[in-house]
Every structure is written in structure tokens, then in C-alpha cells.
């Protein structure tokens, strides 16, 4: 086995072109290796010391480098203020030690349908920037995730950043997750919402769901809610659409019926919290704590 510690993107892309695989925090790769799920690649290139991959750039679009850690996402002022659902999600990942080394790009490219940052990225309209020795392309997340643990990126491509359009005024977002405990937990189900308001009425609403389908999915058909007030009828319509469009599995953590019901509850709570943030209310990160989800301390 070989390990190269890269300090520039060019070095990383050359290594990938020569057959190496990238490692950042190793929280999926090394854990999978230790569990015997998948052997480590023969050739690794460490990408966690490449400065250009670790930048958060404000602007239109906003750009979050792939190796920005969850610990930074949950405290960075740009993310907390304007991409709040991502901060909500990052704050729920693993434990402090996981969040110190785990990265946004790693979460996205691991392709788990239970990834916490995925649904927030979808509702914020993020695209993944993929670079290789041949050039750079951006790809929508619905085209990136092709199944559990699978992406459309080629072996020579590295996710270098997530690119997000600047947020309109009167916008808010939130990510809510059903969890049985407050740390070292994987989403039972989760929902992210982004809401833009025009006065008291909905100008746009997007909702995406975690751990209820082979990939993160966005709820279809919410355009009909435009112009309506955020009230119980609207939240009930969101919950119903989420439960209908989910196709959850049963496993040791929850049955499919339980997931189908609770995804509706999470979706309505996410829209409610996103709308309250859009209206200027301050709800601290992660919104799960304000809602009292997870076992009491």
C-alpha cells in the first residue's frame, strides 16, 4: 500500500489519474476497512492538507470546499446565517471527534441515503464540482447519486466543492432528523426544507428526505403551495406528500411503516422551522435541540 500526503490540488489530481483514491478524515474509509466491509485501496492520496479544498467562499454562488469539516460547517458564520440547514445537519453528525475530521465532500461522495448533509444541499440547490486531470465539471446532486454508496463520478474525479446559488432575501432553511440518541447516531429518517417568503406567503418551498429511499430524494409537486400562508393545512400537505413519496426499508432501527409515518412529521417540522427562520426568528443550530428531539440529557 502507498500513501501520498498532497499539499496541492494538482498533486491530488495527478495521483488520482495514476490510480490513487482520495482520503480526507477516513471516517468512512478506515472504519469500513477495520470492519472488513471493504479493503483499503492499494494507493491513497491524503487530501486534507490541500488549502484550496478547505475554503468557504461567500458570493454568488457560495462555494464550500470539499474538505471543510463538519465542525467548521456547524460554526462558520456564512453557513450558519445563510445555509442554516447544512449547519443543522453537520452539528448532528457523529461526535466531536467525527466532526473534526469528517468532511462535507466525504459525506456527499460516500453516497449513503442516510447522509445528513445531503438533503440540506438538495433544498439549497447545490451542485457538486468534480475535477480531474482532464478538467472541471459541475453536476446536479440528483445526477450525482445513483444508488446507495454509488455516484456517477469517475475514478479520476475528485469532488472539490459544493456550489450553492446565493440565497434570496426572506429565506430560511432547516434540517430535522429523527434520532434515538444525541450522539453517534445515524438518521432514522430526516428532512430538510428551504423556504422563501413573500410577506406571509410562500414564494418557494423545497423539501428533501433522508433515509427513506435508495438516495436522498426531493419531494415533487410542492409548486402548488406557492402563494399560500404557512399554516397547519400547508404543513399537513407537506407531511402527506413526504409520506407518499418515501419508499423506506425496514431494518433493525425502524420498520418501513414507522419511517413512512415519521418522515411526514420530520418534513412538516423542517418546513415550519425554515419558515420561522425565513421570517427572521432565530432558532439555534441544530434545530433538533430546540425541538427536543433525541433522548433527554
Amino acid at each position: 500500500m502507498s500513501m501520498q500526503i498532497a499539499t496541492s490540488l494538482d498533486e491530488v489530481l495527478a495521483a488520482l489519474a495514476a490510480g490513487a483514491r482520495p482520503i480526507a478524515g477516513g471516517t468512512d474509509l478506515v472504519v469500513g476497512h477495520r470492519q472488513g466491509k471493504a479493503p483499503l485501496p492499494e494507493s491513497l492520496v491524503a487530501i486534507d492538507r490541500v488549502p484550496e479544498l478547505a475554503e468557504i467562499a461567500d458570493g454568488d454562488p457560495l462555494r464550500i470546499g470539499a474538505t471543510v469539516t463538519h465542525a467548521r460547517l456547524m460554526t462558520d458564520q456564512v453557513v450558519v446565517d445563510r445555509l442554516t440547514a447544512i449547519a443543522d445537519a453537520a452539528a448532528l453528525v457523529g461526535s466531536p471527534s467525527t466532526r473534526n475530521v469528517g468532511t462535507l465532500g466525504g459525506n456527499v461522495m460516500n453516497g449513503s441515503p442516510a447522509m445528513d448533509t445531503g438533503a440540506p444541499l438538495v433544498v439549497l440547490g447545490a451542485e457538486a464540482e468534480l475535477a480531474s486531470a482532464d478538467g472541471i465539471r459541475t453536476v446536479g446532486l440528483d445526477d450525482l447519486w445513483t444508488g446507495p454508496g454509488r455516484t456517477s463520478a469517475t475514478a479520476g474525479e475528485l469532488c472539490t466543492a459544493l456550489v450553492i446559488p446565493a440565497r434570496p432575501a426572506s429565506s430560511g432553511s432547516a434540517y430535522v432528523r429523527l434520532e434515538y440518541r444525541r450522539a453517534m447516531e445515524i438518521a432514522v429518517v430526516g428532512a430538510a426544507a428551504s423556504v422563501t417568503l413573500d410577506g406571509d406567503a410562500v414564494a418557494s418551498v423545497r423539501v428533501a428526505l433522508t433515509a427513506v429511499a435508495p438516495t436522498i430524494i426531493e419531494i415533487d409537486g410542492l409548486e402548488g403551495l406557492t402563494g399560500r400562508a404557512i399554516d397547519d393545512d400547508l404543513l399537513a400537505a407537506v407531511a402527506e406528500a413526504a409520506s407518499e413519496q418515501a419508499s423506506p426499508i425496514s431494518d433493525l432501527r425502524a420498520s418501513d411503516r414507522y419511517r413512512r409515518h415519521t418522515i411526514g412529521v420530520m418534513a412538516r417540522r423542517a418546513v415550519d422551522a425554515a419558515a420561522r427562520r425565513a421570517a427572521g426568528e432565530s432558532i439555534s443550530v441544530p434545530v433538533n435541540r430546540a425541538l427536543g428531539i433525541g433522548a433527554a440529557a
Partner: peptide, 15 residues
Amino acid sequence: QPINSCSYLAAQAQG
């Protein structure tokens, strides 16, 4: 910063 050293490659801790 705290890390889980069971799941961190020793070679990656160089430097």
C-alpha cells in the same frame, strides 16, 4: 483536536 485513533491511519498523522 480529538480524533478516534482506532479509525485514523498512522501514516496520515505524519507532520
